[in-house]
Amino acid sequence: MNYILTAEGISKTFDDKTIFSGLDIHLPEGKTVALLGPSGIGKTTLMNILSGVMLPDRGKVTLCGEDITGKPGHISYMQQKDLLLPYYTVLHNVALPLIIKGVKKKEAMERARQYFDFFGLQGYENKYPSELSGGMRQRAALLRTYIQSDKVVLLDEPFGALDAVTRAKMQKWYLEISKELGLSTVIITHDTDEALILADKVYVMGEGLRVIDIENKPDDFELTEEFIRLKKEIVSLL
């Protein structure tokens, strides 16, 4: 298997509290991997380490074979909050990763503008984040994440704050665009259904780490018996 992102032997301790030790994560290219677990188990901490904004005590993160442990800027990271900056327009927010990389503001905004249609954000370019609904804000944050890196995206409970209807829509939408754009995604969730719907592989963080592979998902996977079976299995692991 060809892995675009791997984390091997990751250990992290805060003060005296060991969050995890010797953790391995493998993300195949073009696939989605879910990290599932109750809150406080260390999912966000693991994301911080994968993204490079936090150093692990031990272990190595590699992107396409290159060591990026503790080196941010290579893969994009959407945190639990959308963190759209209230003083920039949606277009400016979305173009920010390019501006940080040194692209001139005007050109960065032109480049970012081209994706607005695809992300269902057309017409919102010059609005401020406070004028957007929850779902729209999430789309904008996702587009910013995609523009930051079109290789690997890390999503920390991206749909957690949305209402059930909007969340279901966004999950469907994300499945489509991630396939179309060929994204490799690590997504955090504490929702078993969401993990099963979105992921090709689920890491269940409970007592230790367990891996569940989901291969050849049929359409309307969430209505099949296989889905129920996997759900039961995951619940028993948590």
Partner: peptide, 20 residues
């Protein structure tokens, strides 16, 4: 978390000052 966001984009201190 905003600082973390800019860091994950590879921002330096001046950029964090300028944009945050």
């Amino acid at each position: 978390d905003e600082i973390k966001l800019l860091c994950s984009m590879g921002a330096n201190n001046i950029q964090i000052f300028r944009h945050l």
